[in-house]
């Protein structure tokens, strides 16, 4: 089964141009000039259920725009889009029950509450009966080893503990697809390692499809089976990790490979 199906997806932003200085400001008020930027340009790909996919690219390549369209935050201007068979532009709320999101650095937990209370809140948001929420909290608490601090207000937790709770909160409603936007940003190597093994565990035990963006090569290398590289709004590479490693036997590290591909800027790279 396909979890995500994207065909010729496009998004254009109009950006107002402004010249420097006071004169420029006045001129831009009188004669506004705008330029169109094609943030996402006819992107197509599919993601199978249960897959872990790395969706990477340099800053401004169109990663966030694509994630925002997949989760229903932004509407595309062209192309077809389906997540779990649902069109996010038309049935955003319905889709929301089935997906989860973790945006690194953007906290969704209430810091003055305990993780336990937070989970109950999210349970209410996803209309889960209280008994079921309790059972789910217990389950996730064991999986993520939250027991020691489940009753400590979140602001008193270490960053690693907090991230574990963030993950647990986004899984309270058993999402089928999880979108992770830079989940390990700003974490120390030990916590990074914990988070990665958690993601792996989630994928294996709960069969969650994982859509991950990251600048951290470690995340990609250790987690993903497949990698899509996007640059200047277009897909420049879509290949399995194994295949990628096979062809580059020259001893080039993944990091260097990615740098090379980014530098090729927009041109399709044949691997």
């Amino acid at each position: 089964m396909e979890a995500i199906r994207v065909q010729d997806l496009s998004k254009t932003f109009r950006v107002r141009q402004k010249e420097k200085g006071l004169k420029g400001s006045i001129r831009s008020v009188l004669h506004p000039r705008s330029e169109e930027i094609r943030a996402v340009d006819e992107v197509s790909f599919t993601v199978e259920e249960g897959e872990i996919l790395a969706f990477i690219g340099p800053n401004g390549a169109g990663k966030s725009t694509t994630i925002k369209m997949l989760t229903g935050i932004l509407y595309p201007d062209g192309g077809k889009l389906e997540v779990l068979g649902i069109d996010p532009t038309k049935r955003r709320k319905e889709l929301a029950y089935q997906i989860g999101t973790v945006f690194g650095q953007k906290e969704q937990l209430w810091t003055h509450l305990t993780p336990y209370d937070n989970f109950r809140f999210f349970g209410a948001i996803y209309d889960i009966p209280e008994k079921e929420t309790e059972a789910r909290i217990k389950e996730l608490g064991e999986l993520f080893e939250l027991g020691a601090f489940i009753n400590t207000p979140v602001r008193g937790l270490s960053l690693g503990q907090r991230m574990r709770c963030e993950f647990a909160a986004s899984l309270i409603h058993k999402p089928k697809v999880l979108f992770l936007d830079e989940p390990t940003i700003g974490l120390d190597p030990v916590v990074k390692e914990t988070i990665r093994s958690l993601i792996k565990q989630m994928n294996r035990q709960l069969h969650t499809t994982i859509f991950l963006t990251s600048h951290d090569v470690g995340d990609i290398e250790k987690l993903c089976e497949r990698i899509i590289i996007i640059n200047a709004g277009s897909v420049v590479m879509d290949d399995s990790m194994e295949h990628l490693k096979d062809i580059h036997t020259s001893g080039m590290s993944l990091e260097n490979m990615i740098v090379e591909i980014y530098k090729a800027e927009g041109r399709t790279v044949s691997v």
Binding site: T71, I73, K93, I99, T101, K106
Partner: peptide, 9 residues
């Protein structure tokens, strides 16, 4: 508003 748009409420 992004954060509120991914919630089913």
């Amino acid at each position: 508003l992004d954060a509120y748009l991914v919630l089913p409420k």
